[in-house]
Amino acid sequence: MSKTMTALVKERQEPLQDRYKTAPDEARITDHAIAQSGDADPFHGTVKVGDGQSAPWDFGIHLANGGDHDLPNPGDILCAALAAGLDSTLRMIAARMGVTLESLEVSVKAHADMRGCLMIERTVPNLARLGLP
Results as ranks from 00 to 15, higher is better:
103 S>R: 09
89 T>C: 09
113 D>P: 01
66 G>D: 01
36 Q>T: 15
112 A>E: 08
29 I>V: 13
96 R>K: 11
14 E>W: 01
16 L>H: 05
49 V>P: 03
20 Y>G: 00
35 A>N: 13
21 K>V: 02
82 L>W: 05
38 G>E: 14
113 D>Q: 03
124 V>C: 01
8 L>H: 11
121 E>K: 06
16 L>R: 07
61 I>P: 08
122 R>S: 13
84 A>Q: 02
58 D>Q: 15
86 L>Y: 12
7 A>H: 12
105 E>T: 15
117 C>V: 15
94 A>Y: 00
118 L>W: 02
21 K>T: 09
114 M>V: 10
91 R>Y: 01
94 A>C: 03
20 Y>N: 03
47 V>E: 04
17 Q>A: 15
122 R>M: 08
79 C>V: 11
104 L>Y: 02
52 G>T: 00
89 T>G: 13
22 T>P: 06
57 W>T: 11
1 M>F: 00
41 D>F: 08
104 L>G: 03
75 G>N: 09
129 R>N: 14
129 R>C: 11
119 M>C: 11
69 H>M: 14
24 P>T: 00
120 I>D: 00
122 R>N: 11
6 T>L: 15
1 M>L: 05
88 S>P: 02
29 I>R: 05
114 M>Y: 06
40 A>C: 11
67 G>R: 05
26 E>C: 05
11 E>N: 14
68 D>R: 12
60 G>D: 07
74 P>G: 06
114 M>F: 06
1 M>D: 02
118 L>G: 06
86 L>G: 14
132 L>R: 07
31 D>H: 14
87 D>I: 09
95 A>G: 00
29 I>T: 06
117 C>A: 15
120 I>E: 01
19 R>W: 09
40 A>Y: 05
68 D>C: 05
17 Q>L: 14
61 I>F: 08
16 L>E: 04
31 D>I: 13
120 I>R: 03
48 K>N: 13
107 S>M: 14
27 A>V: 00
87 D>V: 11
115 R>M: 01
35 A>W: 06
100 T>R: 06
115 R>S: 06
50 G>K: 03
52 G>N: 03
23 A>K: 08
57 W>L: 14
87 D>G: 13
74 P>W: 01
105 E>L: 11
48 K>W: 10
81 A>C: 01
107 S>E: 15
121 E>C: 03
101 L>I: 02
127 L>W: 10
22 T>A: 10
67 G>F: 07
132 L>P: 03
102 E>D: 13
86 L>F: 08
94 A>H: 00
65 N>W: 07
110 A>T: 05
3 K>P: 07
82 L>A: 10
101 L>M: 00
